[in-house]
Structure formats: structure tokens, C-alpha cells
Amino acid sequence: MEKEHRSEDRVSENPTDNDKAWLRAAVVSFIFAVIAFGFAAGWVFAGADESSNERAQAFAPFGAALAAIVTFFTIVWRGVLNTRQLEYQAAQISHQAAQLEQTRRQTEAKDEETLAKLLIDAAKLIAEKDKQPQVVAGIAALDIVIRDPKHRYGVEAMDLLADLLLDTYGDQPLSRINRAVLQALGNGEKLGIMSRVEGKFTRPTATFTNNGYWHYIPGIPSLSFTGGSLSQQAYERMFPRIKLLREVTLNGVEVDLTTGRFHKCTFTDCRVTAARWYDFKDCEFVNCDFSGATIKRPPSRDLDVDLRTRRNFYRAGDPPYDQHGESLAALFWDYDEIEHEDDDIPF
């Protein structure tokens, strides 16, 4: 109770911010000043000329003080009034801002509802895989969802596209549907959106007449390929995301076989920087450059493999070595010794 009483006392001691009170004070002080000046004028001019001057000089300070008081009350009144007007304007601006925020939220909710409906409709369209026009239309709708500046359903759209690619890309050549999917996935990847689907693609092992080259696949963070072939460009672009290659033919790439990504693969015209002894049992190498490569092998065990038959080689003065620094030149051709009847080696 004492604290409340003290608080009320402190509030009562502060100047009021009531504009009407300051207006009344200004009017009262003005009326008082007019009356005072009237009496002062009668008092000054009632005497003789010499005494009138003396009386006027005597009253002058009081007149200035009265004028200052009136001016003070007037200025305070105007200040309080301006403050009230500014507060009113601030309240209006705050109200307008609240209305704009509410409108923005309603618009965002409407946009989100529209995108969700578009996502559902697209999922229905791409489910009809035997109807190419509908599937392509569904892919276009998913591309619109992906391009949403706020990426509200971008990941979900990328997941649907990745699933569609897994279902349609593999044994068959690249179709119109596959091209549309890859384009949409590429748009998402450029925007920093990645699918959560693990990409495992399978096709028959490459042959001389059917290489089955895999195309670059964007937007899928983890890729595994079984069968087919990978060109140097496709391999290098996808390499950070490739987890496993099985029975894949690689052409003209630089590889480190110790990463454990390669199983039963064929390497043609490749540059091998590192390998393990059992990689030569598991994989095939044709016209590959092993210059300066490090080949890990068990202690006191010879590499009973024939790598010269398929014309694997090293550059003069830079043979491959095992992990202990022992030269393995005897297992490979010296490049300068190879007969180039057919110009098979492009290096």
C-alpha cells in the first residue's frame, strides 16, 4: 500500500501532459497579463510626465516576465498538442502495419495452399507412367513448385522427381520423360535444393556394341550405378556423390581404387593413381597408365597378375611402386617399348 501511495505521489508531482490543461493555463495567464497591463498602463499614465517615465521603466521587467509566462504556457500547449498528433499518427501507422502483416500472412497461407495442391496434382499425374503427356505435365508442375522462392515444398518435389527417374531410367535409353526429369532436377540443384532419395541405377553391363552410357544426374546426393558406362565428363561431375560403381565401364578417367567405390569394373584408357593387389583380380584394366601409382600388397606376396597382356603401361622413369617403395615395373609395359601398330593408346 505504501509503495502504491508513493507511486501515486510521484506521478502527481510530474507535469501533466493534458493539452486542455495547458491551454487553460495559457488563456488564464493571457487574461491575467491583459488585466495587469491595463492596470499598469493606468498607473503609468496617471502621473506627471517625469514620473510616468520612471513608472514605465519600473514596470517593464514585470511586463516582460508576464509576456514570457504567457509564451511559455502557449509553447507547452503547442508541444503537447503536437505530441498528441504524433502519437495518433504512430497509432495509425502501427494499425496499418498490423493490417499489412495480416494480409501478408493470409497471402502466404494461400500461396502455400496452392503449392501443396499443385504438388498433390503433380504426384497424381506422374503416377500415370503409361501416359507420357500427363507425366510431362506433372514434371512441369513439380518444376514450378521447385522454383518457389521460399522453397516450401522444393525437397518434396525433388523426391518425387528422383523416384520417377529411378522407375524410368535404366534399361531403356534416355526418354523424353527422363530428359524432363533431369532438367527439373538440375533446376533444383542450381537453387541449392537436393532430394533425400538414394539413387541406385541399374542397366546391363556394357558391351562393344552397347556402351549404355549414363548421363549426368543432378539433384540426388547419393548415387550408385550397376552396369553401363561412364564417360570422363559424367564421372568427374558426379564423382563427389558416387558411393558405388559395380560392373561399370569407365573411359579416360583418373581413379584411385583404394576408395572402395569400384567393384568388378572395367577401366579403359584410364589413369590409375592408387590400387590394392586384389583390385587386379576384381577389375579389368585396358590401356591404362599406372605411372607413379602406389599399389598396396600383402607383405612377401607377389602380384600374380598379367597386366601386360591388356597393354597397361607406365611412363619411362616413373614406374608404379608398392607401399614399401619397391618397383613393380616388371608387371607393366614401359610406354616406349609398346608396339603402336594400331595406335590403340591415346596418350
Rank of each mutant, 00 (worst) to 15 (best):
K117R: 15
K3V: 09
A123K: 12
F39H: 02
D344R: 15
L86M: 13
N287V: 07
L257R: 05
I139T: 09
D279P: 07
P218T: 03
A58W: 12
Y321V: 10
E54M: 04
S52A: 12
G219A: 07
S291Q: 06
E50G: 09
R308E: 12
I75G: 04
C283K: 08
A25Q: 08
F208W: 07
S52F: 00
F37D: 03
Q132L: 06
Q92K: 14
G154N: 12
E2S: 11
K117I: 15
I295Y: 15
T294M: 15
T107Q: 08
V197C: 00
F267P: 00
A329V: 02
C270Y: 11
G252E: 09
G186M: 03
T273N: 07
W77K: 01
L174G: 01
E189F: 12
D269T: 12
E101H: 11
A36Y: 15
K296R: 14
E284S: 05
V136S: 06
D282S: 13
A123S: 15
Y314M: 03
R78Y: 12
G79V: 11
H151E: 13
P204I: 10
K281F: 10
G227K: 08
A90R: 06
D306R: 02
R55T: 02
R196W: 08
G228E: 12
D302L: 11
D342C: 00
F62G: 15
F32Q: 12
T74W: 11
A21D: 05
A90Q: 06
R179F: 01
T309D: 06
C270L: 09
H215L: 07
R297V: 12
P149M: 11
N53R: 06
S229W: 10
G292N: 04
T71S: 09
I295S: 13
L303T: 10
D343H: 13
I193H: 10
R310I: 02
M194F: 05
D322A: 14
E112F: 03
S51Y: 04
V248R: 08
L125T: 04
A329T: 03
T258F: 11
P221R: 15
W22S: 02
T294A: 10
A180Q: 03
Q232A: 13
V286C: 05
L115S: 06
K296D: 07
S231C: 02
D19V: 12
Y216G: 00
L244R: 13
I220D: 02
S175P: 04
I144E: 07
L86N: 03
A127N: 10
H215C: 02
T107E: 09
T259G: 06
T114R: 10
D302I: 07
T83C: 02
A40K: 03
L328G: 06
F208G: 08
T209K: 08
C265V: 03
D279I: 12
A141N: 15
L161K: 06
F32Y: 10
F208T: 11
R246C: 08
T259N: 05
R55N: 09
R176H: 01
K190V: 01
E254M: 09
P15A: 01
A67Y: 13
T226S: 14
V76G: 00
